Structure formats: structure tokens, C-alpha cells
Simulated assay, not measured.
Amino acid sequence: MLQYRFKQSFSAEPSISNKLFDLMEVTFPGLSSLAECARKLGASWETASTPFMRFHDDIAITHVGVLEIPMQIMGQKLTVGGVHGVATRAEFRRRGYYREVMSEVLQYCDTLYETLVLTTPQPEFYLPFGFRVVEEHIFKVKCNSTGNTNSFRVLDFTDTKDYTLLHRLLETRAPVSNIVGVVKEKPVFCVNEGSRTLYCAEDLDLIACMEIEDTRLHLFDLVTTQICPLKSILAKIPQPIEEVVIYFSPELLNVKDVQAFVHAFDETVLMVRGKFAAEGEKFMLPRSARC
């Protein structure tokens, strides 16, 4: 017998968390460990997400989660709804359960948010529900940074100082872009970035989500109270950098001769439902905010 539970609260029934992550691990292997990492950083999935689930014999068979993402879009601050963790067990697919749950999700969201976002490698699942694909771009800048002092250090979240720094900057961060940026958001950031290497430049009061590949710097996000010029970041890196690939709109980085390229991040597309003022602009939703 099937039992449907609408907007079940994690706090009202803590056991629902284990049932959800059983489903998540089948659908998205490794997600449970990412969620546990975020929990250790003080930003748990359960405090951020509203779960919409269907059960069979007390086993979670379908889930769609909704969380809030405070954003700045075209200079205006707003809270958008993030749809995430969409999953149905394989043996229960093609029976209409996902459609029923998503319909409940949209009824709930339409009373709260003018804009919904999600990222997915399978946009065809969401087109019937009024979501549309919004084109994203990466940005490339040629440079000739010969390397300077090594001012970045790797954050260690077992250190109370670094843990406190992360929370302070996430709570007070400036949007990385005025076209599309995120402010005062923790859970999605901690799930996406908490298990990665994060770098801190103390004198810039900045946390950088970045990777260096030979002489190429990949810059995914900056968590800081004031976005600084790109040259200030390059000056903190001790090795030569010839190209920077930026995964957000770089208009605040004070760079010239930027080339924009249409890009599907990690083979996923951004989909939106409702108003989205940045549509048609060149931007990317940062890796740290993709859900």
C-alpha cells in the first residue's frame, strides 16, 4: 500500500532523514558523505530543505526537495526556491509518482517564490512543469602573472578559527556578481564545497573556491565582504598563471579582454521557472550554489 506524505518535517520525524538518504545514495552515490560533511560544518541538509516524499512500505521511493537561496540578480536581492534531490527508485518509475510529487512541490512553491531554479543533466524531466533552460557562460582571461608570494593557505575546518571564518564570510559575503550572485547562503555551499580544498587569503579576508591546472587558474567562487580585482588574487599565487577561467560573471573583478563562451557546467544546465531578470545576460550560477 502506498502512503503519500506531503511536506514532511525532518524535525517532526527525525527517522525520515535516514529513509531519504537511503534513496539519495541509490540515485546519487556519494551524496550522503557530502551531506555529512556539510553537517559537520554546521549547515545540515535537514535544516535547509523541505522534503516532499512518497513512501511504499515505509521506504522512500520518490523525493523532491525545496530549499531557499538568497540571491542577487541584476542588482536586486531576492530569495529564490531551489529544487533539488529529485529522485525516484528505479522499480517505481513510470508510474506517475514523480509527477504527483512535483505538482505538490509547485503548488507549495508558487505561494512563496517568484523564481525557482535547478541544475540538471536531464532538462526534459522539468520542461513539462514550466521550467526552461537558461544559457550559461564561462569567461576566459589571458594573463601573464609570473608568480609572487604564496599568500593562500588551505582551510582546516577542524580548527575553530577557520570554522568561524567560513561562517562569518558566508553570512556577510558580497555577491560575486551583480548579474547573478549569492548572498548569506550556507547549506548548498557546504554540500558543494565543504569536501573540496578551500583557500584563504587572510589579508584579503577572502575564501577562494579555485583549482590550478598547470598555468591555468579555475576560479569557481569568492567568499568575501568585498570583491577585489583579479590581479590582487593572482598576486597571492606563487606560480605562473597564463589563463584564468572564471565560472561566474567577472564584471566586479576589474578585468579586460574577457572572452565569454557558452558552457554547460559539469554537463548540467540551469533551469528556471518564473521571473529571471538575468535571462539573456552572460553569467553562470556559481558551482557553490548549484542544486
Rank of each mutant, 00 (worst) to 15 (best):
L198I: 12
A277M: 09
R132C: 02
L23E: 00
T172W: 04
E281M: 10
V66C: 04
L169M: 03
N148M: 14
V269C: 10
G130Y: 02
H263M: 05
C200P: 07
V64D: 03
Q239H: 00
P187V: 10
I16A: 14
G81F: 02
R290S: 01
M71K: 04
N254S: 15
A235C: 06
K77L: 08
V191R: 11
A38W: 02
K142Y: 07
D58K: 06
R290F: 05
C190V: 01
I246Y: 02
V180W: 01
K40F: 07
S15C: 05
S151T: 03
L234C: 03
Y126H: 10
S103V: 07
E91P: 04
T50E: 14
R39M: 15
K19L: 14
V86L: 05
D156S: 13
T27E: 03
K256Y: 07
D159E: 06
N148K: 14
L285H: 01
E36T: 14
A264T: 08
G81D: 05
F10S: 06
T146I: 13
V134C: 10
E104K: 10
V183D: 08
M271K: 04
T62G: 07
L253C: 13
E46C: 12
I69N: 09
V244G: 02
V182A: 04
P187Q: 12
P123M: 09
P286F: 11
L170T: 08
P250M: 09
I241F: 11
A289E: 00
I233P: 02
C291N: 06
L67N: 12
K140E: 15
Q122L: 13
F21A: 08
E243Q: 08
E124V: 08
R39K: 15
V83N: 10
T79W: 06
Y199K: 03
I237Y: 07
Q226R: 06
R94T: 12
F276H: 01
L219Y: 03
T79S: 14
N144P: 00
Y4G: 12
V141Y: 04
Q72F: 00
M24I: 09
P175S: 02
V262N: 15
T62A: 15
Q76S: 05
R99I: 15
C209L: 13
Q3R: 13
N18L: 15
V86M: 11
L2I: 13
R196N: 11
D257G: 12
L127A: 14
F189M: 05
E36G: 04
P51W: 01
L253D: 05
K236R: 13
T27L: 05
